[in-house]
Structure formats: C-alpha cells, structure tokens
Amino acid sequence: MLDSVHNALFAGENFRRLMEGLGLTLWISFLSVVLSIALGIPAGLLMSSKNKFLRGFFRLYLEFIRVMPILVLLFFFYYTLSRYSAINLSPFFVSVMVFTMWGVAEMADLVRAAVTSIPAHQRESGRALGLSELQINFLIILPQAIRRLLPGVINLTTRMIKTTPFVFFINMVDLFKVGQQIVEVSGMRDRMASVWVYGFIFILFFVICYPISLFSRYLENKYQSA
C-alpha cells in the first residue's frame, strides 16, 4: 500500500506538480481577496450612503451575484468574452476577475453591515467631543468597523480557496486538474491511485482551510465578548 501511495503522490514530477497546482490555487485566492478588499470597502461605503440610485444599483448587483453560481459566471465571461471580444482573455485573468466580482459584492455588504451596526450615538459623542467628521470616521467609526469586519473577511478567504477548483472548468491547471491528470496516467497501472490522489487533495484543502476557520471563529468570539 505504501508503494501505491508513493507512486501516486511522489513518483516522477507528481509531487512538484501538485504543489504547483496548489500554488496557483492559493495565488488566485490571494489576488482575488486583496482586490475584493480594495474595491469592496469603497463600494460598501457607497452602499451605506444616502444616494438612492447608487444603493439601488448595488442591491441589484448584490442580488445577482447572490443567486448566480460562480461557475456560471466563470463560464459566461470566459467563453463569451474570449470569443466576442478582440482581446483574448486568459483563464487566469477571468478567474481573478470573476472571483473579485463575487468578493466585492460580499465585501461591500460586510462593510455596509459593519458601518451601520455602529450606533449613531458613537458619531454623536464624537461630535460632542468636538472632533471633525474626518476624525470621527478615522478615529471612531473605522476602528470599530474593522473589528466587526475581520471575521467575515477571513471567512470569505476560505470560501474563495474552496471555490478555486472551479477554474478547472475553464481549462486551468490548478491543484485539482493536476490531480486528475496524475490519476489518468497512474490510474492505468494502479487502481488505487485515485484514492490517494483525491484523498490527498481533500486533506490538503482541509489542512489549509481549517486553521483559517478556527482563526475566524476565535476573532468572532473575541469580538463578541469584548
């Protein structure tokens, strides 16, 4: 059995390729999260603004993202855009773009919830102390909002990581695709190869996501008891 495990995971280039696939998976997630945060915060602030048109537009966008599977969005943008636009979009670009579209929607909603959850009298007490609106935003509202935001952002990160295997549908060679390729080759010789390879990928995802989930829960508890 050990031989079989060894052959499936470590023979030839197998392990290096799996790690490369994992690297791509994490890289896509990382880029998407960073972009989502960068774009989601201003979007969230706009959403909590008074402008009715802006609010309505974001609500519509949010609802669309909420009901549309990420996979369908990947498919739509990859196959339609690359076929009908002059620019040939790489699957990598489409992946990061779609994940960011999703992430921005989630982030914006998190930011909106965090900002509106801060009681109005916090702002009023700031005014009573003679602080300017800008000072109030940066010294009072934002520090509290970020604490409320953090668990949600980390949660979004694990969900991004768990969603990356979808990129395999638009022909990217991520962790998942590498696994499939290895099984196709070694599976001829060793029937158990699929068990080891898919089992390994399964465990790999767990090992990455579980600590992040624990951290998010730790922050949530800390915030609640504070």
């Binding site: 694990t158 768990k162 969603t163 990356t164 295997p165 979808f166 395999f168 998942f176 696994g179 499939q180 099984v183 029937r191 158990m192 699929s194 068990v195 898919y198 089992g199 990928i201 399964f202 995802f205 767990f206 996501c209 579980y210 989930s213």
Partner: peptide
C-alpha cells in the same frame, strides 16, 4: 462539520465518484 465545511464540494464529489469505487 469541520471536515465538510473546510473542503470544496467538487473535491468531495470527485472522491465519492472516482475514489470510492476503488474501495
């Protein structure tokens, strides 16, 4: 709960469909 929440469905499905028959 922890295992299910921290692994992607697609990986779970692959395991069920392609690995379980070998077991």
């Amino acid at each position: 709960i922890e295992v299910a929440r921290n692994t992607p469905l697609i990986v779970q499905l692959f395991f069920l469909y392609y690995a379980l028959p070998r077991l």
